[in-house]
Computed example of a mutant assay.
Amino acid sequence: MKGFFRLLGILFALITILMGLFLLAKDENTADHAIRSWSIIAMSGALIFNGGYYYLKDRSKQGIVMTSVGAVILIMVLSVFPF
């Protein structure tokens, strides 16, 4: 289970980095709100899964804080993001 959480955390972090690079390469006038929202969702996924990994690894408070912050950010973005 720890390995699965770690793998998902790394994948979400890579998606976040790639979307950020894509936004940097795009023209400012054509930057899309949806791409920014999806990158924030990917970032919160990375926080949730990496926090879950650290919690399962050491039962540390750091994992709980990371997971909680990721969940709060995810809820905030999903409440504003139009589907």
Rank of each mutant, 00 (worst) to 15 (best):
D58W: 08
V69L: 15
L74Y: 01
F4T: 13
I35Q: 08
M19F: 08
A71T: 14
F49C: 09
F5Q: 04
I10P: 12
Y53N: 09
T30K: 15
G45E: 00
N29D: 15
S37H: 06
M43T: 11
L24I: 12
E28S: 14
D27H: 06
V80L: 08
Y54E: 14
L24H: 08
W38T: 01
T30V: 06
G45R: 02
F22R: 13
G45T: 06
D58P: 02
G63M: 04
A46Q: 01
A25H: 12
G3C: 05
G45V: 07
I40T: 15
K2Y: 08
I48A: 11
K61V: 03
I64M: 06
I73Y: 00
I73P: 09
G52R: 04
V80M: 05
Y53F: 13
V65T: 11
L7M: 09
I17H: 05
G63Q: 05
L21C: 12
I15Q: 15
G52W: 01
V80Y: 07
L11Q: 01
L24P: 04
Y55N: 07
I48Q: 09
K57W: 03
T30S: 14
V77Q: 10
T67F: 08
F4N: 11
S37L: 07
E28M: 12
L21D: 08
M76W: 01
R59V: 01
Y54Q: 10
A31L: 15
I41H: 03
I35V: 15
V65I: 11
L21P: 02
L56R: 07
L21F: 15
M1D: 11
S60R: 13
D32P: 03
K57R: 12
R6Q: 14
G45L: 02
K2D: 11
T16L: 09
M76G: 01
S37W: 00
L7R: 03
A13N: 08
G52M: 05
D27I: 01
L11I: 07
G70H: 00
M66S: 06
Q62G: 09
M19R: 04
R6M: 15
T67K: 03
N29Q: 12
T67L: 06
R59G: 13
A71S: 10
L8P: 04
Y53V: 10
M19T: 04
S79P: 00
G52E: 04
L18E: 13
S37D: 12
G63D: 10
F5C: 10
W38M: 04
I15W: 14
K57V: 06
R36S: 13
Q62W: 10
V72L: 07
G70C: 05
L7H: 05
L23P: 02
L8H: 01
S39T: 14
I40C: 11
G70T: 03
L18A: 15
I64H: 01
G51I: 01
M66Q: 12
S68K: 03
G45A: 06
